[in-house]
Computed example of a mutant assay.
Amino acid sequence: MNKIEIPELFKEFEDRILKTIKISNEITYKREETLPWESKLGGMPYIENTQQYPKDKDGVPYFFLAQINFEEIHGIKDFPSEGILQFYVKRDDVYGLYEEDGFVVRYIEKVNKCYENLVKDVPVIKEDEEFYPPYEYEGKMIFTVRSMPVSAHDNSFNKVFEGIKFTEVQEKESYEVFDGYGSRVGGYPGFTQGDPRNDKKYDTLLLQLDMDDECGIMFGDSGVANFFIASEDLKKCDFSKVYYTWDCC
Rank of each mutant, 00 (worst) to 15 (best):
T144Y: 12
F143M: 05
K90W: 01
F161A: 00
E8F: 13
K120C: 06
Q52I: 14
Q67P: 03
E130G: 13
I27S: 05
F178M: 04
G163V: 03
P134Q: 01
D195Y: 00
F228W: 09
E176Q: 14
V242Y: 13
P134W: 01
F219H: 04
K241Y: 05
N25G: 08
G220M: 09
G102W: 00
W246Y: 12
E32W: 05
V119F: 14
K110E: 08
E232F: 08
K11F: 05
S156M: 11
Y62L: 03
V105Y: 09
Y46W: 06
M141T: 04
A152C: 13
D203L: 08
N2K: 03
Y29L: 02
E71Q: 06
W246S: 09
E5V: 09
P196I: 01
I23F: 13
K172E: 14
F79G: 03
S174D: 08
F228A: 09
S39K: 02
Y135N: 03
F87L: 02
Y181N: 12
I76Y: 02
Y46G: 06
N117T: 14
R146C: 14
Q67Y: 07
D195M: 02
Y132D: 11
S183F: 12
K22P: 13
P123L: 04
D154I: 05
H74W: 07
G190I: 04
E100F: 14
M141V: 03
V104T: 06
F191V: 00
V111S: 01
V160M: 05
S24C: 10
F166L: 01
S156Q: 11
E38G: 09
E5R: 11
D213R: 15
Q170N: 04
T50C: 06
V94M: 13
E71A: 05
E168L: 14
Y107V: 00
K140A: 09
V104K: 08
E14S: 04
V60A: 10
C114K: 15
M211W: 15
A225I: 01
P80N: 09
T28C: 12
R197P: 09
N49M: 12
F70C: 05
P45Q: 00
E162N: 10
Q51R: 11
I27V: 14
T28K: 12
Y46E: 04
T50E: 05
W37R: 08
C237N: 14
D121M: 15
I6G: 06
I23H: 12
G102N: 00
L35Q: 13
N25A: 06
L234E: 00
F219W: 01
K140T: 05
K90E: 06
N49P: 13
G139S: 07
V104I: 08
F79E: 01
I6L: 06
